[in-house]
Each structure stands twice: as C-alpha cells, then as structure tokens.
Nucleic acid binder design. Sequence first.
DNA 1: CTGTTAGCGCATTCAT
DNA 2: ATGAATGCGCTAACAG
Lengths: 330, 330
Amino acid sequence: MVPTLADVAELAGVSEITVSRVVRNKGPISEATRTRVLAAVESLGYVPNRAAGSLAMSGSLLLGVLLPSLSNIVFPEVLRGIHAGLASTGYQPIIGVTDYDPVTEQALVASLLAWKPAAIITTGFDHTDATRRMLSKAGVRVAELMEIDAEPIDIAVGLSHRRAGLDTARHLFARGYRRFGYVGHDWTADRRAKLRFDGLRDGLRENGLDLEGHELSGSPSSTMAGRQTLAALLASKPDLDVVVFSNDDMAIGGYFHCLAAGIAVPQSLGIFGFNGLEIGEALPARLSTIRSNRFLIGKTAVERVLEQKDASGERVVVDTGYEIVEGETA
Amino acid sequence: MVPTLADVAELAGVSEITVSRVVRNKGPISEATRTRVLAAVESLGYVPNRAAGSLAMSGSLLLGVLLPSLSNIVFPEVLRGIHAGLASTGYQPIIGVTDYDPVTEQALVASLLAWKPAAIITTGFDHTDATRRMLSKAGVRVAELMEIDAEPIDIAVGLSHRRAGLDTARHLFARGYRRFGYVGHDWTADRRAKLRFDGLRDGLRENGLDLEGHELSGSPSSTMAGRQTLAALLASKPDLDVVVFSNDDMAIGGYFHCLAAGIAVPQSLGIFGFNGLEIGEALPARLSTIRSNRFLIGKTAVERVLEQKDASGERVVVDTGYEIVEGETA
DNA sequence: CTGTTAGCGCATTCAT
DNA sequence: ATGAATGCGCTAACAG
C-alpha cells in the first residue's frame, strides 16, 4: 500500500514525529537524521497525506476560488494571475464556477469551506445573505474580485467600473465624438457591465449629451452577438458617430460588422470596447478600449489574502486601476 | 467554534453515525429521525469537514486536473467540459497548471495525489517516468486528454491530430489548392501541433506535393504571432495559394494580416486553421478550420473516469473526433 | 433502523 | 534533538 509516516519512520529508525519535522522543515533536526530520513522518504516514494495533515492542523493549503464563468476569457486570465501568485507557496486552488448565480455560489462556498481552505477568492459583491454569513464567520480571508464600487466583506481587488464608464465618455467626447450609441450583452447577471453603462451616461450628461440609441443583445457576451447587435442598432440609428460596447468581445464583433458592411472605422463610426484583450491589438486597426488588468487582479488578490492568516477586521480595498488604450478604432 | 458531527448529534439526540448517514444519504434512516437531524444541521449551520471524511474513507470527492496552460482558450474550454461533467456529482476539481513542462507536471501530480483524489485528468502523453509510475500505482483512474495517437496509461480522450492534419491536406487539395504554405507557433512543448504538421505533409505527399514554404514563430501561439508570421512567410514566398496555420488563433492573425495588406481571402490566398473557435464564425469571412470538440473532451473524460472507481487494467481510448468546418477562407 | 468500537495519517502538546 | 501520548472529525465494520 501507499507508504505513511510510520513506514518512513521505521525504515529510517526514528519516530514518526521526527519524519514529520523533516518533511515540513520545522523544528530542530540534526543533519545526520535529516539526511537519513530524506533517504527513506525518497526510497519509499513517500507523499504526505494532506487530508490527514489538514485534519490535524485544522487548516489546509487549499485556496477556494469562485469564478462566474470560464467562457469569458477574462476569468481564465484572473485564474492565471491567481496561479502566478500561488507559485511556490505550496497552496493549490480549488475551483468552482457559479454561472453568475448567487444561489449556486452559496452551495459552492459551503462545499469549499468544507475543505478548510486558507482563503476564499470570489467575484463581485453579489452574494446571498447566507453566503455572506458563512464567509464572515468562516475565519478565513475573503477576497472579492473585479470591482471596488461597494463595501467588501474583507478585501476587494479590482477597479471602479463606474469610473471606467465615466472616463470612456470623457475620452470620446474629448476626441470630438457627439452622437453616441451603446451595444451591450445580457447583463442581468453581469452587474459590472451595468455599472460601466451608468458611468458612461453620467459622463455624457456632464457634457449635456445622452445616448442617441442603445441596443442590448438577449444573449451572453460574444463576438457574434456584438456583430449582430451593432447591425440591429445601426438599422434604427444610422447616423451615430461612435458606439461604445459592453466589452471587447462585443466590440470586436461590431468591428467585424463594419468590415463586412463596408463601414469605415473610425472615419464613419468609432468603436470602443472594454478589457483590453490581446486580440484587440492584432486587429487590422488596433481596438480602442480600456485595459482592465485581470492578471494583476488575480495575482494581487492572492498576495493580499495569504499575507496575513486572519482578517484584521478592517476592510481593505485595492484599486488595480485601468488604462485607456488609444487604439485606432475611436 | 464551528460545529461538528458531535454537536449535531447531541442537539438531535442521536449518535454521530446517524447524523453522518443522514448527511450522506446513506444507509436506512427513519423519516422521523432524518427530519430531526436535518433540522439540527440547519440550525447549527453544520458543514461536514471533508478532510476528516477523506481521511476516514481514504479517498476524496476531489478530482485532480492538470492543464498545460490557461492562456490558450482551448484549455478553459476543456475545463468547462470537466465542470459540466462534474455537475451535481459532488466532486470538485483541483487545478494545476504545468506550463507544458513535464517536470512541473510531476511535482503537481505528487501534490494532487496527496489529496487522494478520485481521479486525475491530465493532458497529452508527455510525462516523466516518475509521473507515469506515480500515476499507475496511485490506484486512481487517470485520463489523458486531447490526443489519442499513443498508448494511454489508463484512458485517453481526444482526437487523432495526425489524421486531422492529413484530412486538412486532402480537403484543401480537393478544393483545388496546390501551393501550400504553413505558419506555426513555437511547438517545442506542444507536440500536438507537430503531429498535425506531420499529418499535413503526409497528406500532401500522397498527392505528390510538399509545402512550398513554412515559417515558425519563435513565440507561443497568439493572434499577433499569426499576423506577423504570415507576413514573414509571404515576404519570402509570395505565390502560395493557401496557408495552413497551427491553430485558429494563428489563422485569425493571418487573416487580419490579409485584411490589412489588402490580400483577397480566399481568392488570392486561402487560410485554414485548427480548433473551430467561436470567434472564427464571427469574422467577416467565416474561418475555414477543423472543429476539435474541447468541451466534449472534458465532459467525456469526467464521465469515463467516474464511471468505475478503479482501473480495470485494460486501456481505453475514446475518439471524440473532429469535423471540417467549410467556412469562407479556404 | 440505530449505536459502539476502532481507526484513517498526521501534528500539537508535553516530556526527555 | 528526539519521542510518547493524544486528538483532529469522520466513517467502516460490525453489533444489536
């Protein structure tokens, strides 16, 4: 069977606890026994049983991660950041996908907590009360990612989507655009897109403007949805001079529509996205957008969350910011 | 403190094991005690400690998942399939990212195994001998995803990349193309791209042809790399009539180059990819490519791996196939 | 249908 | 510097 501490101890001629100390690099060990133990570990191919370890120390080297979706490239990128932050810490992420549903999230939080993770990283501020309760009394660090427009349970890492929307309006206004349109996806669950939309309108009102038209796709964000929805918008509002999209996927779809329909970008119509995906830079005309540093968000969250074992009580907000990417489409 | 079985048992006036049975829905329980226990569970907010559970039953409801990368959209899609297959099974995935490095993979396998997962899902056949040894004697199901061109440790789920390459050549030949070029990414670690390349050349030779030219980017697969590398290839070989790309990302980049350079696709140059990414369908001209059913691969792997607790010894190969997507670019 | 007994493999006391 | 005893919270195997 698979070797345990006891087997290694016997082979090395020491006690279990000594092996345990060697393996964990903890406590004083003479160089002689250390090498002897290590040799035994090696020859038996001993691998510590984490379940037993967690149980004994009531805590684990697991990090609970909750993502709303994996279809949206944004979240795998956050996950990449999380992995980067975890590198060589010994921690491992356990992943749950909520499908943007707070009730699903609640069930996942419960089952993640069952592993006694060192921390939980989740997305946004939309949680059920039960989730919020579990999270606060679990005694672990909790990071809420992507946005910072509300009060976090413990730590928030992200950017202000409302301000990003506002800055979009200001930036485009400064570039001379006046007849604004908006194309979005089904944002019933994606409140951050809504925040950007609200910020955008605020920014327009600041300058005495409003959207000339907007169109929401009934489907989730996708390039195809962006393409079709822009076509629909232009059918009813042909004289816009710029269209802001809920994100880059949608914007790239819009750009494709323009290419296919022979609409000159940005001469006849400006296109503006959100996220700053890599692909935007490879388009025939570089996409004008806002870069949202997803990798950094994931990495920063991990660092913060592992920095101090237990929450000090005071809420922390980390603004990872955003940058306007000038591009060539608006 | 956080409530345990004992607390629930006391409150409900039963023994621990009875609570355990109720919680796990296992063994015969009278309706009366079941409701009483459930009430106690509810009122205490009891959540079972999985570490203790795993230790006691020497096995867990964890599934180890090893992915080479999260940057390539293909793997998040596989992960989506895995999640779909796991839905409502109670299992949860624990993720490791190998960066296409067998040595990194080896370390990850060791630490995943430490959690006594029910199964391990990994990618491809490139493992160190140590990894292979650990995996075979761990006594858990092992699935190797994406390819089926070699002998699996236990279960392989994927497609034949060599045949996909071969069929690409045949398909394009049948459509009248004769002057073939190839644009690839840095595939030192991505042997599957190499397999497709080999298959492609075999298919050309079948018809008395060979590649007129090929160019490999020094960087990993990306849209930008595809764009630049096609430009480089065409600089030295301007009279190709079709270019096959190592995958869709690269192909889309190539298509963008053509748009920017005013090369008519497919009249002057055909473009052919691999993977069948969604975005390919939203391009001004639908990308011609091969669809590789990533979601299905992940889902199937989970189903197979959970179907039977322990490996029967005989290797299983599941061919999830592929389809040629006609498209409008070749 | 329910309870008792006995660990699972490790880490935290406290000794030595 | 090392070891012995004890328990983490749960479940399997057997009673009753």
